[in-house]
């Protein structure tokens, strides 16, 4: 499904503002919702300002937490058992490793083990930016999607930042909401995200239709894939079909398989690490279920297999971009 922009906004709406807008509306309309995280309250409004202004409007439901990722997550789980809908914020997704146990062993297993639901949203600022270094740049979907019971979403557009967050807060399962730090301020919409056409959580979106090669991506890398598709169309007359997964677990395999059946070729692009993870899962699904449609080996492009470097030059070399996606598509198409 190709999504169209509509309803022009009076001013540009940034990705971060869409998140704040969704949080504000959730707090306003659902008394079960509360926000809990480090530095999110007061006038500060969080390390990236996603909650700025919300504590003033909802002083008893926007709460600062100590530096305790494990307890923040455990507290959300306990509050969810009481019928609340906690939305917790990690300052950086990298720090969610401290909460790994509560996320994968407690929240993720709750429904299957006990029959009780655990509705909560964990907001994780993901992704690399130059100078971020090894501990402020990571993608976490590789290890969080591995565990059954967690829903993992990664919006790439302003409208999805808004709608997927609202969908996450109404989901009865724990949702890991991966929001890309680079997109916070660098992606803006010239339309009102609240009135944008959108898909429900769980469905992938086709951001650009094409017949020559399927390019699957998510989060910030979708924009590199779209840039690559533009270049390939203009300079090589190669039409890529760009799929934005939006939701990584559960995975919308049908949309990928249907696209590969049309194009016969697949490139998966991510800024995550190469070993295991979502790219490996997609290639496994396509290789086993769409082998007969493939005209070339399915390929993936990931970050280099080291911790994420600090220096901008090293980071640029480590981080996939549109040029490398385009080169891999060319290689795949000419196979």
């Amino acid at each position: 499904m190709r999504l169209q922009r509509q309803e022009p906004a009076e001013r540009l709406v940034k990705y971060l503002e869409a998140i704040r807008l969704a949080l504000g509306e959730l707090l306003e309309h659902d008394p079960r919702v509360f926000l809990y995280g480090q530095d999110i309250a007061g006038t500060f409004g969080g390390a990236f300002k996603a909650t700025k202004g919300l504590a003033e409007r909802f002083p008893t439901r926007v709460l600062n937490a100590p530096i305790s990722e494990d307890a923040i997550t455990g507290i959300a789980i306990g509050a969810a058992q009481e019928g609340l809908v906690p939305i917790i914020e990690f300052q950086f997704a990298d720090f969610a490793s401290i909460a790994f146990n509560q996320l994968v062993n407690h929240a993720a297993t709750m429904h299957w083990r006990t029959g009780q639901t655990c509705p909560m949203v964990a907001r994780l600022p993901v992704g690399g930016t130059p100078g971020g270094g090894p501990f402020h740049s990571q993608m976490v979907e590789g290890w969080l999607t591995h565990h059954p019971g967690l829903v993992v979403v990664a919006p790439s557009t302003v409208a999805d930042a808004y709608f997927l967050l609202k969908d996450a807060a109404t989901c009865t399962d724990p949702v890991v909401f991966c929001e890309h730090k680079y997109l916070y301020y660098h992606l803006a919409a010239d339309f009102d995200p609240r009135r944008a056409e959108h898909l429900p959580m769980g469905r992938a979106a086709i951001r650009r239709s094409g017949t020559d090669c399927t390019v699957v991506s998510w989060s910030g890398m979708v924009h590199e894939a779209l840039k690559a598709a533009e270049v390939l169309a203009g300079e090589h007359e190669i039409e890529c079909e760009v799929i934005d997964l939006r939701c990584l677990r559960p995975l919308d395999a049908d949309t990928i398989l249907e696209s590969v059946a049309r194009t016969g070729r697949l490139v998966v692009a991510t800024e995550s690490w190469p070993f295991g993870g979502v790219t490996a899962e997609i290639l496994a699904v396509v290789a086993s279920e769409a082998f007969q449609h493939l005209d070339a080996p399915p390929q993936r492009l990931a970050a280099l297999d080291t911790p994420i470097p600090f220096h901008p030059a090293l980071f640029a070399a480590h981080h996939p971009d549109a040029a490398r996606i385009a080169a891999l598509v060319l290689e795949t198409v000419s196979f």
Partner: peptide, 27 residues
């Protein structure tokens, strides 16, 4: 009378109980 379902990772139930109480406070 709610008894939380214990996970084997010791200490993990402390924040969960705190969270249940925070939930009660918010309610």
């Amino acid at each position: 009378r709610r008894q939380l379902a214990f996970i084997s990772h010791l200490g993990a139930m402390v924040p969960a109980t705190v969270g249940a109480l925070l939930g009660k406070r918010l309610k």
